[in-house]
């Protein structure tokens, strides 16, 4: 434990040093501007001080972001529209719904690909093509089309989130369901096993490590999808909306606070999936 703390702190310290340095450098132009307008000369100390607490800095310094985060998380009632917890929950619910849809879709397509020659040849190219289209181009159309059908709120965001997260699950599960080698398949053949039995007894359990690896990628992609889904059509709730309104009004501290909230959320989600992975594989006897 102690052995890993020191390296982590070292890296963190290095990041903070670079960040403060960059903030001084990027924000100093505004400080010089202000001084020139007031006819003042600035010493180095003045410049540095002038870059630490600006209202709309180009790059907010770490302690400004930390304060923004703290205000957003702990400084508000969690039902308030200024609360990052509330916005985080809005994004999280779309993320989880989208992740569920995407995982289900990815597994279903993978099962089809492994069992059906026609799907094997036809689905994968489309799945790959779907991921080459920028999600930013797709998202507004999904929102608009679904809104014209009367579907608004959580579901359109979940659809965009599922669009991003089904792909890693699909790729991982195709690989996982095909993981059993010829000998293992021959063994089941000697039992005259049906393909359903082969699936439930061999292919599915053998794919579990692959499934969890892709779920970790999938849940992070789901979060990105949900945030992107909040950007178009001027959504008013969610971390994406915080990012958007922050950039409208030049509230860089708010943007960075929302970014950090999103990153923390992603880290927690990946950790939760990792925990479920460990428990499941342990119960299956696949972890030593």
């Amino acid at each position: 434990m102690m052995r890993s703390v020191l390296p982590i702190l070292t890296v963190l310290a290095a990041i903070l040093v670079v960040w403060y340095g960059a903030a001084v450098w990027l924000n100093s132009a505004w400080a010089y501007d202000q001084a020139a307008r007031e006819g003042r000369e600035l010493t180095l100390v003045d410049v540095v001080n002038g870059t630490m607490a600006q209202e709309r800095p180009v790059l907010p310094v770490p302690h400004q972001v930390a304060k923004g985060l703290w205000d957003g998380v702990a400084g508000q009632k969690i039902t308030s529209k200024r609360s990052l917890v509330w916005h985080g929950w809005v994004t999280l619910s779309a993320t989880l719904l989208g992740f569920a849809i995407g995982t289900g879709l990815g597994i279903a397509l993978a099962v089809g690909i492994v069992h059906n020659k026609a799907m094997d040849l036809s689905v994968m190219p489309w799945a790959i093509a779907s991921q080459t289209i920028p999600i930013l181009a797709i998202a507004p159309m999904v929102i608009v089309v679904l809104a014209s059908l009367g579907v608004t709120g959580l579901l359109p965001k979940a659809v965009i989130s599922a669009y991003l997260s089904f792909f890693p699950v699909l790729v991982g599960m195709v690989k996982g369901l095909r993981a059993p080698d010829g000998m293992q398949l021959d063994l089941l053949k000697t039992y005259n096993a049906s393909s359903a039995a082969t699936f439930w007894k061999l292919r599915l359990p053998a794919s579990m490590p692959y499934l969890f690896a892709s779920l970790k990628v999938g849940i992070a992609a789901s979060l990105v999808g949900a945030i992107v889904g909040e950007l178009p059509a001027g959504a008013t709730a969610g971390l994406g909306a915080r990012l958007l309104s922050g950039s409208y009004y030049g509230q860089t501290v708010q943007i960075w606070a929302a970014l950090f909230a999103a990153a923390t959320l992603a880290a927690v989600l990946v950790m939760v999936v990792g925990l479920i992975e460990r428990v499941t594989l342990k119960r299956m006897g696949m972890a030593r």
Binding site: M183, D186, T190, Y191, A193, K201, M208, G285, M286
Partner: peptide, 28 residues
């Protein structure tokens, strides 16, 4: 189901116990 086949590698399922592995053909 006239024969049992033993391969060069044991090929036991790592997610099944020994009893579970022996049970596999019986379940099927």
């Amino acid at each position: 189901r006239a024969y049992g086949y033993v391969f060069q590698a044991a090929g036991l399922y790592p997610w099944r116990t020994i009893a579970g592995n022996v049970k596999l053909p019986l379940e099927i």
